[in-house]
């Protein structure tokens, strides 16, 4: 009996020590991981290494921000990212080797999916953006003055320069190209292929929720077109099934009417057959219709004929996709 109780005590002691070891190891592991500001996983050399990114070298230490402390870096902008699937942000500053006053800061946002990254990218895109077309598949980017912004896979990337300088822009472009080459984006945004040909370059936008002020329109893609010289914006949102698409289309129409829109006649036979509705919303035309599992339409068009023409092309394209 004494032997048994002795063995039991030994066993309990061993279990207790094992538990303590696991807890300590976990704590050490968390500490080690939290100290890991290794930007090299993005193919970027960090300060303290002999390597640098071309004519620029990393300065200072890289920083990492998570969901809880993101506001400490970007303050009031944080909710926009947090509400769009944000996981974490890594940042690093770089300075020109020949002129330390010329610097830029690299921000790499992990947005958890290509769709989320594209959403924050497109919603912040500047009107005077100059698009890059050579960053690789599934990668979008533009230059706006002193800043380069990129959506690549699940990452939204910003490079913000300290000045408007050709040297700085060239350095950032080089890094953008290197980043894309080292970490090619494999995740595609399928919805972009649903749009008809002729999109105004770089005009795609994704509103994750509350598109056009209506909370029923989520995951809504839009793009700009020119129809007979008139600007038109096409939108589409893939729903769960055709029934949901019909319901959302009707609800959006009702939302517009409730908010002062006036129903107008549908002239196009194609639109009539698709069950499309057109409203005049304070001088701008809105068209909405369901097409199988899609809710689609035209947003804020100045010209009704151009809007109907664009809607016809969209209906044709969606029918082609759905077979």
């Amino acid at each position: 009996m004494h032997q048994n109780s002795g063995r039991a005590r030994t066993f309990e002691t061993a279990i207790g020590i094992l538990i303590l070891v696991i807890m300590i190891a976990t704590a050490i592991g968390i500490y080690v991981i939290s100290q890991d500001y290794n930007m090299s996983r993005f193919g970027i050399s960090t300060a303290g290494n002999d390597e640098s990114e071309g004519d620029f070298t990393a300065i200072g230490t890289s920083e990492t921000y998570n969901y809880d402390n993101l506001y400490e870096k970007i303050n009031g902008k944080a909710p926009m990212y947090q509400e769009t699937g944000f996981v974490k942000l890594d940042t690093q500053r770089f300075a020109a080797k020949t002129n330390s006053d010329l610097s830029f800061e690299l921000y790499i946002y992990d947005m958890n999916s290509a769709k989320n990254a594209f959403s924050v990218y497109s919603r912040q895109k500047r009107p005077d953006a100059v698009d890059f077309n050579d960053l690789g598949a599934n990668t979008f980017g533009y230059l706006a003055g002193n800043a380069i912004c990129i959506s690549s896979g699940k990452n939204y990337i910003e490079m913000i320069g300290s000045a408007e300088s050709n040297e700085l822009v060239n350095g950032m472009k080089e890094m953008a190209t290197n980043l894309s080459a080292k970490r090619p984006a494999s995740e595609k945004i399928a919805e972009l292929e649903y749009f008809p040909q002729g999109t105004v370059a770089g005009s795609w936008k994704l509103q994750i929720d509350n598109a056009f002020g209506f909370d029923g329109l989520t995951d809504t893609y839009s793009a700009s077109y020119k129809v007979n010289g008139k600007a038109v914006s096409i939108f589409l949102s893939k729903r769960k099934d055709a029934d949901e698409a019909k319901a959302v289309a009707k609800n959006y129409y009702d939302f517009l009417i409730t908010n002062g829109a006036k129903a107008v006649s549908v002239d196009s036979d194609i639109l009539k057959s698709a069950g499309a509705s057109i409203v005049d919303f304070y001088g701008a035309f809105e068209i909405v219709f369901p097409a199988d599992e899609f809710v689609a339409g035209i947003h804020e068009a100045d010209n009704k004929q151009a809007a109907e023409k664009a809607a016809e092309v969209l209906i044709s394209r969606l029918r082609e996709i759905n077979g």
Binding site: N75, Q124, R126, D128, A144, G145
Partner: peptide, 12 residues
């Protein structure tokens, strides 16, 4: 005008 409070581009 846009993208406040941090901005990021002179285009803002």
């Amino acid at each position: 005008m846009t993208n406040g409070p941090t901005g990021g581009s002179v285009s803002d």
